[in-house]
Design a protein around this nucleic acid. Structure first.
Lengths: 334, 334
DNA sequence: TTGTATGCGTTATCAC
DNA sequence: GTGATAACGCATACAA
């Protein structure tokens, strides 16, 4: 089955390819009658436009590239889903790549996308990335770049981030109001703004409550389940009675450590996480957490991208609200 | 910054575009000296090949399409990850679309991918799909189609599936050996082979143990958390003392129902799931489940696709082994 | 309202 | 070992 082209249709109808091209594009300069006829015949012949040819001709494709650290992370896959929700109906398809948190992969991904002449690139920067040359190249090439979650101030273009600060503030505040006195913070990498913001939220909440913050209660790079487990076993004996974790996985590690120590979560020790992973409401006791609205974020990102592609892009940072979900782990009710 | 083409390089070096094209492709017919020179200059000039042009000319692209029901499902995102792991180094990029379990979206996705002239399509069929015309069209167009997990016998091409049967058999067997006497099955849609296989595994395990299976213990379309919750409340009073669920989410629903009924999981009522979602080992008691090796599956799928693209495709069904993970919910030890 | 001509950037088939 | 030329399928500026 040979692919049918507009030339084939043209021949069949006794007109020229240009007419077919215009008719299929619903160009008003073609009579309605011809347009309908062309579309009918095109369908009958099983015509499928060759988007590569069209893109080559037009100098731009309907492909949008997306680079995320890992696709199989709840948050990222939700964002992807939200992006598709808007981009697909708008006629764009998503070319997805993973950086696996590696700069090298990220650079490769950017090159691959650029070679595919994508209409734009959406990305959440790898945690390892400290050089932005590859993304600068994108910007310099006038290819719209929209960043989300993990963004760099060095790069121009739209940025969409979570309100990490407020989420962290609310989670910490609740722990304090529940009566816990020494609330620690298990944070993430200082290199990523998202984690800095969460730390700031924690600090401000503590400051607003106590007037000052004890730096000794802040531990950085405690972001995995394993790290949370080890760290809580190390510090729980030191009078700490609650912890706001910058991620749900480390919060779960904290659960494991506390259970092993025979310390009752909630009753004796408060815990709050960030991310609202599916398991947060499934574990015992249920984990208070901050929900990042992944798909909502994806939709915002997609809209920014469409604007940028249409030349009406803004160089702004959009803050998507988060939702603090209060559950049992941060109350003293149990 | 105008895009630099092979013509620009040719002009700069005083040779013709053909030579540049050949040199960049490492064609032996051009002298080593020239090849090196061309590559050097190309890099200096910041040349990025235009893959759309190359694809148009060659009649095939380096894009592989992938259609999954939902990207933000643990299993599917793992498969995607595995596929990328193999496909990217091989020079292919993934064009991903979601069907959201809707036939209409699936058809649209197929058309979109075909219009982008993908080199092949990887898919896990939507649960709603009962007509395969769109995929048949792919096959007829000689575009390699590789199916995984949810496959249809009606379509030729490589298929990669989990060993659903054995996983279900082992999970059920363990429940029986733990001493539960009336083990029910909460299954999925009868339309999907994966669920049929799980049901078969359950049935055979029960048959091997009791000599016969009580059809009354099998409930279909109980696959969501909500459904599991409702169904277990409905049947727990009827003497059933264990259930093998075709999915972890319904198993969690069962947990919720049992807790509400004051029935002790494991001690009084055994539960096993399928999928080994991250939460399975985080909930209380830990949930026995069957692990589907998503990324391994993805890698197999990708290899089949590459073979198919290279013309050495096989029309086979590959069964990827699963791993039954025995945890607390299916023992009577607690 | 339709046709003509040209080019998008690349590769492949001839020549030389 | 390199060059000239055509073609992939489509869209558009310009003519008619």
């Amino acid at each position: 089955m040979k692919k049918v082209t507009i030339n084939d249709i043209a021949k069949k109808l006794g007109v020229t390819p240009s007419t077919i091209s215009r008719a299929l594009a619903d160009n008003k300069r073609v009579s309605l009658k011809t347009r309908e006829m062309v579309k009918k015949v095109a369908k009958e012949m099983g015509y499928q436009p060759n988007l590569m040819a069209a893109s080559l001709r037009k100098g731009r494709s309907d492909l949008v590239g997306m680079i995320v650290p890992r696709i199989n992370r709840h948050f990222f896959s939700n964002v992807i889903s939200g992006v598709e929700e808007i981009l697909n109906p708008a006629g764009y398809s998503l070319l997805i790549m993973q950086s696996h948190e590696k700069l090298r992969s990220e650079v490769k991904a950017v090159n691959s996308l650029m070679q595919n002449r994508v209409a734009g690139i959406i990305t959440s920067i790898s945690s390892e990335t400290d050089d932005f040359g590859h993304f600068q190249y994108v910007v310099d090439s006038k290819v719209p770049l929209v960043q989300f979650d993990r963004v760099s101030k060095e790069l121009t273009g739209a940025k969409v981030v979570n309100d990490n600060y407020t989420g962290a503030y609310l989670a910490t505040k609740k722990l304090l109001e529940s009566g816990y006195r020494r609330v620690a913070h298990f944070g993430g990498s200082r290199l990523l703004k998202a984690y800095c913001e969460r730390r700031r939220g924690y600090e401000d909440a503590v400051k607003d409550y106590f007037g000052k913050v004890d730096e000794g209660l802040i531990m950085e790079d405690v972001i995995t389940r394993e790290a949370g487990y080890l760290k809580v076993k190390e510090v729980a004996k030191e009078g700490i009675d609650a912890v706001f974790c910058a991620g749900d996985y480390s919060a779960f590690g904290v659960y494991e450590g506390l259970k092993e120590l025979g310390i009752s979560i909630s009753k004796e020790f408060g815990v709050a996480g960030f991310g609202n992973e599916p398991f947060a409401e499934m574990i015992y006791p249920t984990l208070s957490s901050v929900e990042q609205q992944g798909s909502e974020m994806g939709r915002m990102v997609a809209r920014q991208m469409i604007d940028a592609i249409n030349g009406s892009g803004h160089n702004i940072e959009i803050v998507v609200p988060v939702k603090y979900i209060d559950r049992d782990s941060s109350g003293k009710v149990l």
